[in-house]
Write a protein that binds this DNA or RNA. Structure first.
Lengths: 195, 195
DNA sequence: TACACTTGACTGAACGTTCAGTCAGGTGTG
DNA sequence: CACACCTGACTGAACGTTCAGTCAAGTGTA
């Protein structure tokens, strides 16, 4: 009972931190804010983590597990390049919907390039783009896609999918209709807007 | 000479703040940082601005002038919907290249929805999307574009163009080749990746 | 069973530092 | 003088972090 009480608390702290960091941003959230949100003392957070940044680090590690799955599936999966990319789009948007805060933490360095752990996060994004680019490159080589620079296209795809995911910030109601989102992204990315 | 020394100083403060806010983010930059960057006292900043947030506000007003031009041109300009959107893409990417910090300030609330002036900035983004959507809607009505929800497409376009603009954060060298960027975005948005 | 000892989980209070913002006053020009 | 411009010295509050110590729940021993 008490053996895993510590683990439970650690998870509770992480859950609160995920929500707060995702909503307000790392800098704007104090350790006291996190502590208050999960009803513990600030000192307890330093019992479970070495410092504030390591809380963020733990969240990022968790986030990678959630989102990287879809990238790996696209790279290692079966089917045509387009099929695998379509599955990536759907999967990524699903994860984005259920882990908005986590996604915001991951993409923040794109608008905050000197923020906390920016170097690590940007490297991660770079790896994601490279992975998607490899799938696109396959499609280009096989003639499935038109000739183009794969890394650029991959960048655009990630931009599209993340914009769509961040859309609930805007007035646009993105809730519950991520199927429509996936369709839009798929269509925009593969066929464009032109009739 | 000294009459407009104040104006000059105000502009210098704004220039430093633009750079610092754009690189490190509003929260991570102290008033003392800004003061030190343009070699004045912190007190002087409070002589020219009522508080820290109003410095950001002044920057945003300036940013709007820089970026809104391209949106207005797309809405009020002549030519087909596609031509006007293409001009918007080129213009926006040009401004983005020469005002990276400013753009980062404008889009930050997308990943920091409770940050400083987020409400105002999000409203601004909403207006931009609505404006682009109206152009896309024209294209849809005239049969130039395939039937689709204009606001979603507009959202995607803005996402594409801003992702491309933020790309210099990544390892991808986006400098000096915003023509290639514009081509990519144009192609991705209008024709998609498919052969 | 009883009692001394250890441990993991947790806290209140305080640390030094940094922050946004203030203020009384100085300097040069019309 | 009067006014625009500017500064050094300062303040209260908030910050991340530390620390001495509490407490309930084992554990080993007799």
């Amino acid at each position: 009972m008490q053996d895993n009480a510590g683990q439970q608390t650690r998870e509770r702290i992480l859950a609160c931190a995920e929500d707060l960091f995702g909503r307000k941003g790392y800098d704007a959230v104090s350790v006291a804010d996190i502590a208050h949100a999960c009803d513990v003392s600030t000192a307890l957070i330093y019992y479970h983590f070495t410092d504030k940044e390591s809380v963020l680090k733990a969240l990022i590690d968790h986030a990678s597990e959630v989102f990287d799955v879809h990238v790996r599936e696209a790279v290692e999966g079966t089917g045509s390049a387009r099929e695998r990319l379509e599955r990536f789009i759907v999967g990524w948007l699903e994860s984005a919907e259920s882990h908005v805060s986590l996604l915001r933490i991951l993409v923040r360095p794109l608008t905050d390039p000197e923020g906390p752990l920016a170097v690590e996060l940007l490297a991660r994004i770079g790896r994601t783009i490279a992975a998607l680019a490899s799938v696109i490159a396959e499609g280009v080589e096989s003639g499935e896609f038109a000739p183009m620079e794969p890394s650029r296209a991959a960048e655009g795809l990630l931009g599209l999918v993340n914009t769509r995911a961040a859309a609930d910030v805007l007035n646009v109601p993105a809730n519950a209709d991520h199927h429509a989102s996936a369709e839009l992204v798929t269509r925009l990315f593969f066929s464009g807007i032109t009739r």
